[in-house]
Amino acid sequence: MTEYILQVKDLHTSFFTDAGEVQAVNGVSFNLEAGKILGIVGESGSGKSVTSYSVMRILADTGRITKGEIYFKNEDITKYSEKQMHKFRGKHCSMIFQDPMTSLNPVYTVGNQLMEAILLHTDKSRKQAKERAIEMLELVGVNEPQKRYNQYPYELSGGMRQRVMIAMALACEPDILIADEPTTALDVTIQAQILELMQDLQKRLGMAIILVTHDLGVIAEMCDEIIVMYGGRVCEQGTADDIFYNPCHEYTKGLLRSIPDISGSKKRLTPISGTPINLLNLPKGCAFCARCEKAMKVCLSYQPEELEITPGHYASCWLNVKERMEPGKEEARHEF
């Protein structure tokens, strides 16, 4: 049996705002194997970031995990106290964010911020921590680490800052690295550098990565397993090949049809019609049904069940259920 380092079971996260309860994550479940890269892809508002924030429990004040369990090495971390979470973050699981400009503290030097994590989680002395910090800067390919150690974030370029963020996240050798849109703010050539670095470090240090992004290109380059999210739910889950070559959810199919063809043919794009979902007012049935061309009656009122298409490839779409249904079950069929 495969060992899972992180298991998320039926996670629900809501934000309680003045306008009402915003159900950002609605029953998300997934397993993360040690040493694998899991990609979470979706549009803005699909709940992909909130899922990762929930694992780290760094939600905004109004946000709360309302239901579900998150197991880290078979221990439910949703039951952890705030103090236990302090130990968990940084040591076992750390995170890098989209914008390296705002996620580094501008008034402390790079070295100071790097050392903070090391001093907090290990019993190294200040001198050893400094050595470790410089070693980390070297590992992530920052040139002249001795000099950078004493510099402030504003003195570094965007790519360098993201490297510092990665160094900080990896300083205590976590088991899991959560990367929330790590390259969205960067240029393509710098993005390629950072992705290469992450792949390289992942192989060397053997950690698991959760990569949250909206960029299907980045997902295809990096991930072993992919989760496609829409409206706070998982639509489809499978290996990279499953998702790209055999998509079984209408949303995944639509997403793949709306990106320009890689062969460079000027074939007209097929967009998904309509506008993104309003999380304040989730439909009763499938979240995607308002934009789905093949929506049926049942999609409006019932949430689709998750079906295993091939081993390890799951999709939640009524069309798959319909296809599987035996012709004999007439009374069930007329629902469609």
């Binding site: 050539t189 390629a192 295809a220 380059e221 790209f244 793949l256 890689i262």
Partner: peptide, 13 residues
């Protein structure tokens, strides 16, 4: 620049 573009196709990538 062209080689750095992430390609949304796992096999090509």
């Amino acid at each position: 620049l062209l080689s750095a573009v992430p390609i949304p196709d796992p096999k090509t990538a």
